[in-house]
Nucleic acid binder design. Structure first.
Lengths: 376, 376
DNA sequence: CTGAAAGCGCTTACAG
DNA sequence: CTGAAAGCGCTTACAG
């Protein structure tokens, strides 16, 4: 039993907080007379005209300092930059984006970033894009397609220049909408013969088949499944069952669990599964967390893993190999997915000079690896 | 040794992709003559005027349908909504934000979301905010303060209405800048007597002290440290060392590792540490990943954990308790941090009617728990 | 290399 | 409950 020693404390302190909003127009100088009659809400921040006035140039020149510094005379550049620095001016990209139709925003729609490999994908995706001057708008869809679609509208209202999607199971209206806006789209973490645009992923069906094969080769005769029932889980299930069917195994016990998957859920699922299918000698779990939970349950049931019961997870939680060598897992390169997805988008965004009707329909299958320690 | 069985494959397919951008102005009708002479870039998307024309109302009314539907006559509302639906109109929030000074954006600046508890915080933070109509702009700072500061400018250019920051160690100029823009700020994952604005966190110093105490109570005489040297790690280190010093232990071996921390890094660090400090009988690791790596190394060295060597991690990787019961860890409620941070921001954003100079300086200490299985 | 004018697509603040 | 006018803070497309 865990012994908890807690120093938890909760305190709400209240103090004063002086409004420190800086004067919006230090040295507005000559611009003063030109101030609009209509003040829409209190003092706004600095505007490009404030910088321009101070630097003795036009607003256009200040704009160029940010967007095409090479087209500005070195002296002017320096002078403007100093004013920017001194005033602490930060351009308003809402205005800039509206004016230029370049939001410099890329949206990423993923089911979740908690406890999941998607977080790794988003991490590198974001790093790669930010190096290229883009920012990432993160949208978490949970695991429902309808939620994904309503999120898309929210996201499109920011006019992103590209979109990363998770999976390939999208509603028709989402696909249509995306086609209409005409921005580059990358689907990730799955594969299909009919991507919306570009794709970086792998086959869940093949994974299911490979895990079934793995179990079969090790003598399993009654493999079972513990997983959620989202599109990708169902694809793995299909591959798993079909490979087993080829080997003459058609009765495959299944325990469907609701997301989010966790160790606790896996721990509860295994006994339930075994109660219904006592002869089970192998279990393919929908995630490493579930697999670890199942392993814990197996331990309590005094089952030898992998001797009596083989357990395979999915997702490669790095630690799994270290702390639970009895488990088999399926490794997927989430980092490569994120980097490749970002590059695909950037290539399209940069090559836009061709403004073309014809784009490359790029697809990468990053594959996967079934990882098992044969001997410990 | 792991046996890899790979079906990895990489393929780049190229196909045609017809430009499917929809006609920007289906039924522009009466508006046609009023089209601006200057076409800035090809066909733009639908505008609010397109919807207005189709619905036979003014643009303002369409705007109200989205922003204050209760102020629109039911019939009008319905009619406009049908046109919106039919046309697939999505309002442009760049324009809306510019015009209203309400970006409906909240920025989150975190070091990383890969393999970390921050991802859990960001997950619930994002969920909570999106329910309230805000979206999250994610900015990954790595672990450097200078990078955090330059990121802030990038982020501020989107005019977010609130900001979540990780930690409390920020440069003065960042603090000043944030004070100047006057938006609500929540610092998280640490604590301080002088927050910029609001704070939801816990004391890393206290954690260090509590872990030292834990080790001491279990008879450790030569505790050591494996961790990074960011601000929070240093605070834990300080608490750890000072509590040990009180017990007369002043020589504390330390192995500083560069982020990102991982199992592999921990596995390498322990032997190095033991080479320099052979008598070590307890190690406080900066993360659970490091602790698991150290545990693996200890196993290879045939050291009994926790008998000969106690190992404590940090961060509560949920699985750790299940797969590595020999480890002690420090549990922190990342979910509560995310939810509370979001609520703090929302409370401020909603109570803005008071447009006040005086704000509550809210602080929550969510505490932590040292978790150890005493018997297995 | 630099600038005056017009416009990006919305919403605010009045009116009625 | 609805609308005409003005403006949000930038950038584009010309000129020079």
């Amino acid at each position: 039993m865990p012994t908890a020693k807690s120093t938890a404390s909760t305190a709400d302190k209240t103090g004063s907080h002086a409004g420190t909003r800086a004067d919006a127009n230090p040295d507005a100088g000559v611009e003063t007379a030109a101030r609009p009659k209509r003040t829409r809400g209190g003092p706004k921040g600095l505007r490009i005209t404030d910088v321009a006035a101070q630097a003795g140039v036009s607003p256009i020149t200040v704009s160029r300092v940010f967007n095409s510094p090479e087209s500005v005379a070195p002296e002017t550049l320096e002078r403007v930059r100093q004013v920017v620095q001194k005033l602490g001016y930060v351009p308003n990209r809402l205005a800039g984006g509206l004016s230029s139709s370049r939001s410099r925003l890329v949206a990423a729609i993923v089911p979740t970033i908690a406890h999941s490999l998607f977080s790794e994908t988003i991490q590198v995706f974001s790093e790669t894009l930010s190096r290229a001057g883009y920012e990432v708008l993160l949208a978490l869809s949970g695991y429902s397609a309808s939620s994904e679609e309503s999120l898309l509208d929210t996201v499109l209202s920011r006019r992103p220049e590209g979109v990363l999607l998770t999976g390939v199971a999208h509603t028709d209206s989402l696909r249509e909408r995306l086609a209409n806006v005409g921005i580059p789209v990358v689907e990730t973490w799955d594969t299909t013969a009919t991507p919306i645009d570009m794709l970086v992923g792998f086959s869940h069906y093949e994974i299911g088949a490979a895990v079934a094969q793995h179990f079969l080769e090790r003598g399993a005769r009654r493999p079972a499944l513990i997983s959620a029932n989202d599109a990708r889980a169902l694809a793995r299930r299909a591959g798993f069952r079909e490979r087993l069917a080829q080997a003459g195994i058609v009765a495959v016990a299944e325990e469907i669990v609701a997301p989010p998957s966790s160790v606790a859920v896996g721990k509860r699922a295994l006994p339930d599964l075994l109660a219904r299918a006592p002869g089970t000698d192998a279990v393919f779990c929908g995630s490493d967390l579930l697999a670890i939970g199942a392993l814990g349950a197996a331990r309590q049931l005094a089952l030898d893993v992998p001797g009596q019961l083989k357990i395979c997870g999915f997702g490669d939680l790095e630690f799994a190999t270290e702390t639970a060598p009895q488990l088999t897992t399926v490794r997927v390169d989430g980092t490569r997915i994120g980097v490749s997805a970002a590059r695909f988008l950037l290539d399209r965004l940069n090559g836009e000079s061709a403004r073309g009707e014809h784009h490359e329909h790029r697809v990468i299958d990053v594959g996967f690896t079934v990882l098992a320690r044969e001997s410990t």
